Simulated assay, not measured.
Amino acid sequence: MSRPPNPIDGTKSVYATFAYVLRWWRESRGLSQDALAKELYMARSTIQAYEAQEYEPDDEFAEKLDKYFGTGKLFYYLWYHSQREYLLQKWDAYLKLEPQCLQFRSFHPNAVPGLFQTEDYMRASFTAGNLPEAEIEKGVETRLRRQELLCRPEPPLFWVVIDEAVLLRPVGGAAAMRAQLAHLLEVMDLPHVALQVVPLSAGAYLGQDGYFVMLHLPERTVVYEETGTDGRLFYDPKVVHERHVRHDRIRLKALPEEATRDLISGIMKGV
């Protein structure tokens, strides 16, 4: 006997209300998740993820539901207002999506990407935030665990761009930074990693003021951005497209991979 699905509390957010209404209409028609998925030409796991709020709906899915259930623009309007809630999305939501990723596209103007950091670099970065020792250890442990993505079978593809200023900042001291730079060179040897650096000589360029990462998931692409105090997770296709264009334009300012390797090696010798 299968367990009943977990209840959905629609008071938590518009996304939760969307999930509640989706389940209500599905069950009112006597449809299983598998049956509805077949009607909409998608995987059952996708319907399950929407109802569990592991995926957040997009406008295309909302319009499919409205058409199928004959609900006018009910689902579309729920989706529309849910877009105002992206500010509430935090790091934990990103961490749930990261292991599902098929491709990463990211830009880092202030620090070495967490997935490419050495333990000493991580520890120095967390320590600089004046965090309690327990939180520092937890942060290091979590980041090291996330790095398993790099060496798992069939790992994601990584398209990563870093600003040269990141490489010049001796986080953790000279020895720690030399080790970090050496580690970046090792990471570049991985066949699924493409790493480029935007040189200081590029001057000002679009996007240099903010870190972002695009996660290309099996069913969609999302964007995560981070400021000094908060994180934002975007599901809006328009935002995703704009960041994709921004990443491409930043890469045009970056050095080719071999020149990037030479630059990192030269900086490492001078640290």
Rank of each mutant, 00 (worst) to 15 (best):
C101T: 15
L31V: 09
S2T: 11
V271R: 10
D58G: 06
D66A: 04
K96V: 00
S265L: 15
E141H: 10
E225H: 10
V171C: 03
Y76A: 13
I250K: 00
A111F: 12
R169L: 06
F116R: 04
P5T: 11
A175S: 06
R220P: 00
F107H: 15
V140F: 04
W25G: 01
R84K: 15
G114I: 00
Y121P: 02
L185D: 10
L115N: 03
R146P: 03
E154H: 07
P156R: 10
I47N: 07
G228P: 01
D262N: 11
P153Y: 05
D236R: 14
N6H: 07
P99S: 03
R232D: 07
Y50A: 10
L22P: 09
E186V: 02
Q180E: 03
R84D: 15
P99I: 05
G72R: 02
A174C: 11
T229R: 12
A52Y: 11
E98H: 01
L95D: 01
F107N: 08
S32A: 02
K269I: 04
F126Q: 05
K64T: 04
V187C: 08
A194M: 07
A194F: 08
F104T: 06
V166L: 01
P237A: 11
V112T: 10
E39K: 14
S201N: 13
R3K: 12
L88P: 00
V14K: 12
L185N: 08
T17F: 01
Y224F: 15
T229M: 06
K96F: 00
G266H: 14
W159G: 02
Y235C: 04
D236V: 06
L144E: 08
T229K: 06
R220M: 04
E148N: 10
E85W: 08
Y235V: 04
V239W: 04
K67E: 14
T221P: 06
L252W: 08
A111Q: 10
V240R: 12
E133H: 11
H192D: 08
Q208H: 14
F69H: 07
P7W: 02
A259Q: 15
K73G: 02
L36M: 07
A124W: 02
E27Q: 02
R26T: 07
K73A: 09
E257I: 14
V161P: 00
F107K: 12
G203F: 14
L78R: 09
L233Y: 01
T142A: 13
R23Q: 10
G173N: 07
A52S: 15
R152E: 06
L252C: 06
C151V: 06
A43K: 15
D59S: 15
P113D: 11
T46K: 15
L22H: 12
T17D: 05
F212G: 04
D163P: 01
E39S: 09
L31A: 11
E60P: 01
R29H: 15
M1P: 10
E119S: 04
W24H: 12
L157H: 09
N110S: 02
V213N: 13
W159T: 09
R232E: 07
G70H: 08
F69E: 10
W24V: 05
G270C: 08
A254P: 11
G210E: 05
E54Y: 14
P170N: 12
T142R: 15
H108M: 04
L97A: 07
V198R: 13
P113L: 11
D230H: 09
G139C: 00
I162L: 01
P113W: 07
T142P: 00
E119F: 05
A259F: 06
A111V: 07
Q103Y: 07
Q117M: 09
